[in-house]
């Protein structure tokens, strides 16, 4: 399976230690609608007069990491906000588990098993870490359905510890954490609650090398456990470490849609840098070989 995925196996360090289990046998042969957890067909989005996205065809497969790359303002965040229910698309269709959906609110997306780490939407700063962690997914107990604070605190502590964040006092307000720690709380939360799809919008932007490594490992592990992962990044090397499928957005349109075995990290970098023509030429030459 990993052999079919491409040449640069040394870059797959994060994924090679285990074979995907929950993936359909045919998963990486050809993308068909049946095992797409999310599938976008000709999706577009306008903000008033700003045409942020046009004609996006994208399928997020279970057990795969789909990387979305592109310049600032290319429309990456807009794309994931549609999948996360924060914005409604203005054209095209979005299929979630095969059914056409238009999420009216993030709550509907959360209920459909889609968990998101946003680039610009932080946590509530004055609320404690554990309250933020379980926000909108609270554990309740007893006939009065009161919050099970002890259990939520314990889980929060454990999940953060797994990410290498040692935070004994989860009662602290999130506002007192460092930017990177906050980001880790948001990521840990999404990973813990993402049932079907995990969406991460530039999760490693604020993180140190160690935490970035942990996050990438988690991204890979989430895909291995059968989730569809959408990973947005500016860093083609990060993308190539974990990605199965790469999409480059340019001015709101798809400039590239390639699976891992169709592209190298150099090509990806070049594409992002804008050398489309050159890359295309090289791709042609590669094909001719």
């Amino acid at each position: 399976m990993s052999a079919a995925r491409g040449s640069s196996s040394e870059e797959r360090a994060y994924r090679d230690h285990e074979e995907p289990k929950n993936v359909e046998p045919e998963a990486d042969s050809e993308h068909d609608a049946t095992d797409s957890v999310i599938r976008l067909e000709g999706v577009g989005k306008t903000y008033g007069t700003v045409r942020a996205l046009t004609g996006i065809d994208l399928s997020v497969q279970a057990g795969e990491v789909t990387c979305v790359l592109g310049d600032n303002g290319a429309g990456k965040s807009t794309l994931i906000k549609i999948m996360a229910g924060l914005h409604e698309h203005t054209s095209g269709t979005m299929l979630v588990s095969g059914k056409a959906r238009k999420f009216g609110s993030p709550r509907e997306a959360v209920e459909a098993g889609i968990a998101t780490v946003y680039q610009d939407l932080a946590l509530a700063p004055l609320m404690s870490v554990w309250r933020n962690f379980f926000l909108a997914n609270e554990i309740r107990k007893g006939p009065l359905r009161l919050l099970d604070a002890d259990r939520m605190k314990r889980i929060t502590r454990d999940e953060l510890a797994k990410m290498g964040i040692d935070l004994p006092d989860v009662d602290r307000p999130v506002g007192s954490l460092s930017g990177g720690q906050r980001q880790c709380v948001a990521i840990a939360r999404a990973i813990y609650f993402g049932a079907k799809v995990l969406i991460l919008d530039e999760p490693t932007a604020a993180l140190g090398v160690k935490q970035s490594g942990v996050v990438l490992k988690y991204v890979a592990r989430a895909a291995e456990s059968g989730l569809g992962v959408v990973f947005i990044t500016h860093n083609p090397h990060h993308a190539f470490l974990v990605g199965d499928h790469f999409v480059i957005l340019k001015l709101g349109q798809m400039a590239l849609d390639a699976s891992r075995d169709e592209i190298t990290v150099e090509q990806l970098t070049e594409q992002m840098a804008g050398g489309d023509e050159l890359a295309e030429l090289r791709h042609e030459m590669h094909e001719a070989d």
Binding site: A84, L86, S105, P106, R107, A109, V110, E111, T116, Y118, L121, A122, L123, A124, L135, A136, N137
Partner: peptide, 8 residues
């Protein structure tokens, strides 16, 4: 942020 987390 609350809305994005799924809070109505």
């Amino acid at each position: 942020a609350a809305r994005a987390s799924g809070v109505p």
